[in-house]
């Protein structure tokens, strides 16, 4: 099925802030307050039926002067209908919080921990939001654009 993003906007109105479709990649930008409702609709509606969460990632728009600064990106896939949907949520630097999907998808647990580790975006309702790639002693979030390029935090050996 094509046109999922259009369908979402028809259903949710202003809660879907914008939609676009580049080369068949259908994308909808969801409002944070309606995000969980939209995700549940995407999962349970029998025409959309996206039963698989492929990936969660984020983009830091600091150097592009984005307002709000971060975009959290979710990739959904339907194994039964063989189509994909990309859902984005924009969050601000002052309040980088998104509802967690860990209860709905087990895979979201680790993916959200990775986004927390790399970008410092918190997931409300996550059962165990710890770092997953970096070590506990690490401070900061290395994929944020304001993380200093040459900053090293070695556990042993010379500090720079």
């Amino acid at each position: 099925m094509t046109g999922i993003h259009i369908k979402l906007q028809e259903k949710f109105g202003a809660a879907v802030r914008e939609i676009h479709n580049q080369h068949g990649d259908e994308t909808a930008v969801a409002d944070r307050s309606a995000f969980l409702t939209i995700v549940q609709f995407v999962r349970n509606n029998h025409n959309i039926d996206c039963d698989m969460l492929t990936d969660i990632t984020a983009v830091d728009g600091l150097s592009l002067k984005w307002k709000p600064r971060f975009e959290v990106i979710y990739h959904f896939y339907s194994t039964k209908k063989n189509h994909r949907l990309r859902l984005k949520v924009k969050v601000d630097e002052q309040d980088p919080v998104v509802p967690s999907l860990a209860a709905e998808w087990g895979v979201a647990n680790w993916l959200e921990r990775e986004v927390w580790d790399m970008f410092g975006i918190r997931f409300e309702g996550h059962p165990d939001l710890r770092r997953i790639l970096m070590y506990e002693q690490f401070s900061g979030h290395p994929l944020r654009k304001d993380y200093p390029y040459s900053k090293r935090q070695p556990l042993i050996g010379p500090k720079n």
Partner: peptide
């Protein structure tokens, strides 16, 4: 980058 030891001879 932030993650990698710059030569194991530092350790």
């Amino acid at each position: 980058n932030y993650a990698t030891v710059q030569g194991i001879d530092t350790i």
